[in-house]
């Protein structure tokens, strides 16, 4: 038997417990039936244990999503924690699936588990990556779309961590606008 040093068994606790979800678009089932909780974790090592053993987002079939949300918040508009909120949306072009998507998603995950948003951590609900043939999307979901200053600070931090060039803007859309939109996209409440 291998003798394991106690140091090897120490795990680093996270500020929040996070749950990873997976969505696969099976049109024969209800939307909610297609959304599955993979597992929840609350240490750095358990995050990596999960991340290292699931498929990279860029290799998922079109129509699939990964979501990482605080434990207890479901990755849907209807959840009590999400319904007054919105999301910062990063739209990727088709080329970026191979060049940027996995890096963007990992960086977003590290922002979440590492509490990169500092005092605004309570505004953060989670994030979702949508794999779609028409264009992949990364969304950072927040709790309250009316909190303008907080929302803008979160957007700026996200843009900084993803190293999105200054000249490229990203928009924030309230879930209530997205749910009632007439066209293909909801209006931006904020932009950075």
């Amino acid at each position: 038997q291998q003798i394991v040093s106690p140091d090897m068994l120490i795990k680093h606790p996270l500020q929040n417990r996070w749950a990873m979800w997976f969505f696969k678009n099976d049109k024969s089932k209800e939307w909610t039936a297609n959304l599955k909780l993979i597992t929840a974790f609350d240490t750095v090592e358990d995050f990596w244990g999960l991340y290292n053993h699931i498929q990279k987002a860029s290799r998922l079939p079109s129509g699939c999503d990964y979501s990482l949300f605080k434990d207890g918040i479901q990755p849907m508009w209807e959840d009590a924690s999400n319904k007054n909120g919105g999301r910062w949306l990063v739209n990727l072009n088709k080329n970026q699936r191979q060049t940027e998507l996995d890096n963007f998603w990992l960086e977003t995950l590290l922002c979440l588990i590492g509490e990169a948003f500092d005092d605004l951590t309570d505004d953060i609900c989670g994030a979702t990556i949508n794999i779609r043939n028409k264009g992949d999307k990364l969304g950072l979901w927040t709790r309250d779309a009316r909190r303008g200053d907080a929302t803008l600070q979160i957007g700026k931090k996200l843009k900084e961590r993803l190293k999105i060039p200054q000249k490229i803007g990203i928009g924030f859309q309230a879930h209530s606008d997205t749910a009632t939109k007439a066209g293909s996209t909801a209006r931006d409440r904020y932009r950075v």
């Binding site: 680093h12 500020q15 750095v44 090592e45 995050f47 990596w48 244990g49 590492g114 509490e115």
Partner: peptide, 20 residues
């Protein structure tokens, strides 16, 4: 009292004993 981890700190554990 909050647990903040920067990206470099988090990345060093990707291939840690407990993670693999």
């Amino acid at each position: 009292g909050k647990k903040h981890y920067d990206r470099e700190f988090l990345l060093q554990f990707q291939n840690d004993y407990n993670a693999i």
